[in-house]
């Protein structure tokens, strides 16, 4: 059910941008706050509609919630996000939500977690990864496999290289597509790296998010490693306007990604028409 607290779910609340982190040349994380708190509570994997009021609205996954702010990691890909990348701290934005089902954090309790991300796809995964660390005793071994085109394109570098590897019982594997001078780590695509690492499916839930082509090959690799469809979770993207399952466009089959998704397990996805 909806935990949308607002009277009219289509009208945004005003938030202030309190911090902007430049993650990569085309990804920035925006920290937003309302009255020293959050406009609403979100669960990992849920979405919110962010608006630059005179320009446009866009649906983004909330990449983390702290007590006093929400974080959105946003890639510059179009009119609205281009504009968003030019704003400064202090700017007011509109935000409405939360929308969507979010990750099944309860169902995953007691399991080993395998996170597989590519590019900006780490943004939604990050909310679940950080949730696991916050509730560390509830989850088993945590493995993170992440890749980007280049070193510069890796998001959340400080967490990837410094914070997360320090967490208890956690392995972080990072790869980039092509060799570079300043990189002495693994080189190659994420699905190939996943096969090389060959994680054990026993009691494990795999959560993947990234470009469609990466997801396609990651799903094939997981199947080869004998992960069952129920053990594999991903998030889907579609164009969205309302966020509340009314405006029509984000359907795949009879499911609305904004309301019934964006998180699905592979068993659910296989029942949908192949439009994802």
């Amino acid at each position: 059910m909806s935990n949308c607290s607002c009277e009219n779910p289509l009208v945004p609340q005003i938030v202030e941008v309190i911090k902007i982190v430049e993650e990569t040349p085309d990804v920035k994380t925006f920290y937003v706050q309302k009255d020293n708190g959050v406009p609403f509570d979100v669960m990992p994997g849920q979405l919110a509609m962010v608006s630059l009021l005179p320009t446009g609205e866009g649906m983004f996954s909330v990449s983390w919630q702290e007590d006093d702010h929400l974080q959105f990691a946003i890639k510059r890909v179009g009119v609205m996000t281009d504009e968003l990348h030019t704003i400064d701290v202090g700017q007011r934005l509109g935000v409405r939500g939360p929308y969507g089902n979010g990750f099944p954090v309860e169902k995953c309790k007691g399991r080993d977690m395998l996170f597989i991300g590519g590019g900006i796809g780490l943004a939604p995964l990050r909310s679940f990864i950080k949730y696991c660390f916050k509730h560390r005793e509830d989850y088993g071994k945590i493995t993170i496999i992440y890749g980007s085109r280049s070193y510069d394109d890796l998001c959340f570098k400080e967490e990837l290289f410094e914070k997360w590897p320090q967490e208890k019982d956690t392995q972080v594997y990072v790869t980039i597509d092509n060799a570079e001078e300043k990189w002495d780590g693994h080189v190659g695509y994420v699905p190939a790296y996943l096969e090389e690492l060959n994680p054990d499916p026993q009691n494990t839930i795999a959560v993947t998010c990234g470009p469609p082509i990466m997801i396609k090959f990651v799903l094939q690799a997981l199947e080869k490693m004998r992960f069952s469809d129920e053990q594999v979770i991903t998030t889907l993207e579609m164009r969205m306007k309302c966020g509340i399952g009314k405006c029509g466009r984000c359907n795949i089959g009879s499911e609305y990604i904004c309301l019934d998704g964006p998180v699905f397990d592979l068993a659910q996805l296989r029942k949908l028409p192949p439009e994802w």
Binding site: L10, L53, P54, T55, E57, K241, C242, K246, C247, R249
Partner: peptide, 18 residues
């Protein structure tokens, strides 16, 4: 019943409509 949401603005003022 499908609808779009768009914005009309003049500078920093405006309205959002469907």
């Amino acid at each position: 019943y499908c609808f779009d949401v768009q914005v009309k603005n003049w500078g920093d003022e405006g309205y959002r409509f469907r």
